[in-house]
Simulated assay, not measured.
Amino acid sequence: MDDLKGMAARTRLVHAGRHPHDNHGVVNPPVYHASTILQPSLAVWEASRKPDFPGYRYGRAGTPTSRSFEEAVADLYGAADAVAVSSGLAAIACALMAVLRAGDHLLVSDSAYFPTRKFCDQMLARYGVETTYYDPRLGGRIADLLRPNTRAVFTEAPGSLTFEMQDIPAIAAAAHAHGAVVLTDNTWGTALHFDALGKGVDIVVEAVTKYICGHSDVMMGLIASTAEHAGAVRDMVRLHGNCSGPDDLYLAQRGLRTMGVRLKQNEANGLALATWLEGRPEVSKVLHPGLPSHPDHALWQRDFSGASGLFSFVLRPVPRAALAAFLDGLKLYGMGASWGGFESLILPGDPKALRTATTWDEPGQLLRIHAGLEDVDDLIADLEAGLERLTAAAKAAA
């Protein structure tokens, strides 16, 4: 369907990027496994070398499989263009390098995804870009950190592990007044729950690995850009030789069509678990911006239309043996990196080592949960049994 204007996001999730009657009526876009793409004449070959060529020139530069996915994502974000890359970190790296050059200054939220920090500190620094980390709750006061050579501000809301919200419209207003580009990692909110470009962001990155894919079987990222930056972003992706494989693109498209209903369940389960955990004596704090107790709840309500299934909570201090008793006996929560799939996960984290502009002073263990699609009563019962094991082990160690 070509004209989706005015239709709801969940409707566009189903229809954007699909052109069945271009493919014999087949509902799902076909998978093109392609490296070589032939041109029928010298004139077309010469035209295919030009940047504005509307067709296909080589598998790495795009196929109908990648184009259908990118078209759908661009539609969802209201972006001039979207490009798929090999991972979420690849999206972050290519987006940053598309706008930065040697001698530039970059501002990055202190609560950003840790691999983002590593890329800034270990790769961008090597090429003469200086990074300053800022308090994610700074809002419009970020203007005080802008230097004459500040080229970009990288945001992430909510923050990784600790879930601080950011006043992105205020940050964007200050950055744009200075002539800086605003980027955001929107993996938690997705295009369904946070209208990043509508809130002043210029370039959005998202880990397709997470909610778009939804089945823990794809590594992919995306970059969605305004018209001003779309060309530079796509050029940088091509210069890096970065692309996504056709089978992964197909799986990502399939996940995209059901993301609306899946994310609704992830949100409901996450809020139910977070609310239940708030009432447990073993828990000192729950970090979920959808809870009224969260210090940035009003900001989340203003800018977001929903939540995902990812949040954290902090235990009251217990011996390591008690923590192990809790985690090792869980039946429904796997312990592994990533999130956004159909299955629930739990992972210990330590923000202390990941901060430079802010501090993390909680004495207890932080645990991050991804609420999957299981029955929420079963998920609660599994946590309850785990906390009972934790309490018993803590008493035994006392």
Score class of each variant (00 low, 15 high):
146 L>G: 08
137 R>I: 02
210 K>I: 05
100 L>V: 10
67 R>H: 10
29 P>Y: 04
191 A>Y: 12
224 A>K: 04
380 I>N: 03
245 G>N: 15
262 R>W: 00
25 G>Q: 13
199 K>D: 10
358 T>L: 04
147 R>C: 05
195 D>G: 04
377 D>V: 05
68 S>E: 13
363 P>F: 03
125 A>S: 14
191 A>M: 13
8 A>Q: 12
174 A>P: 09
252 A>I: 06
116 T>A: 13
240 H>V: 00
24 H>R: 15
89 L>Y: 01
318 V>A: 11
306 G>E: 12
162 T>H: 06
370 H>F: 04
295 P>L: 11
195 D>Q: 10
202 D>Y: 05
361 D>P: 02
355 R>E: 03
121 D>W: 08
314 V>W: 00
21 H>C: 02
164 E>T: 06
29 P>I: 00
249 L>G: 13
317 P>D: 01
73 V>A: 14
355 R>S: 06
238 R>S: 14
335 M>N: 08
362 E>Y: 03
360 W>N: 06
226 T>E: 11
272 A>Y: 01
27 V>P: 11
195 D>L: 10
267 E>M: 15
270 G>H: 05
74 A>I: 06
352 K>F: 05
242 N>T: 02
344 S>K: 06
301 Q>T: 12
368 R>F: 07
320 R>K: 11
193 H>C: 12
258 T>S: 13
377 D>N: 15
20 P>T: 01
51 P>F: 12
128 G>P: 06
143 A>Y: 05
259 M>Y: 03
307 A>P: 00
175 A>P: 08
384 E>I: 10
225 S>W: 02
168 I>L: 13
340 G>V: 03
